[in-house]
């Protein structure tokens, strides 16, 4: 099988590591070769963070390069717009519509683009944008955006709901399992 590439992008502290952990657990059950590449250290302090998830029959590189991503899953709108060059032809962006101003915007040194979704669509990109934050709050916590996004992404793969659920169970602490299941379901139905 040709390698599939999923990029998970967002703002440091938003919980993208849990999303990649969940995908890793899921893919492991199907016997794929898998590589997941994370960023630790300084970028996690509110910077732009990227996680690469790659799977297929044989995966060499741990990173996804420009023009290779089948999916870009973004926790934040500006971050979706930042990585469009990484999409392959026919690739898709799934993004939360939440806006988090980066420091240059907060200080007035730069402008947050007015309508990144329309701009991405105008550039010919397949963008699936929705308010994952509200759904996470509906599920019980704004921290559950990661599971809402994974739920939404799940519609693009042929894994069964049972397979996803088993992966969720293995990835989140038992105390938060019900919350995360709700978030996943809300995202899947969004």
């Amino acid at each position: 099988m040709e390698t599939k590439n999923i990029m998970i992008v967002g703002v440091g502290g938003q919980g993208s590591l849990l999303a990649s952990k969940l995908l890793g657990r899921l893919l492991l059950t199907r016997g794929y070769d898998i590589k997941v590449s994370e960023v630790h250290g300084m970028s996690q302090r509110g910077g732009s963070v990227v996680t690469y998830v790659r799977f297929g029959s044989k995966v060499y590189s741990p990173i996804i390069d420009k023009g290779e991503a089948d999916f870009i899953v973004s926790f934040e709108l500006l971050e979706a717009a930042r990585y469009t060059q990484y999409l392959r032809k026919g690739g898709k962006i799934v993004t939360n519509t939440q806006r988090i101003n980066p420091m240059p915007v907060i200080t007035g040194a730069a402008r947050y683009p007015d309508d990144p979704v329309s701009e991405m669509r105008a550039a010919g990109i397949d963008v699936d944008a929705f308010d994952a934050l509200s759904l996470a709050e509906q599920a019980g916590s704004p921290r559950a955006v990661n599971l809402v996004l994974m739920g939404h992404l799940s519609n693009s793969f042929d894994f069964t709901p049972e397979e996803w659920d088993a992966a969720i169970e293995q990835s989140v602490p038992a105390a938060y399992l019900a919350l995360n299941r709700r978030a996943f379901a809300l995202g899947r139905n969004a």
Partner: peptide
């Protein structure tokens, strides 16, 4: 994208 994307430093 043509729009400048502001950097997001830590």
């Amino acid at each position: 994208l043509e729009t400048p994307i502001p950097v997001r430093p830590p």
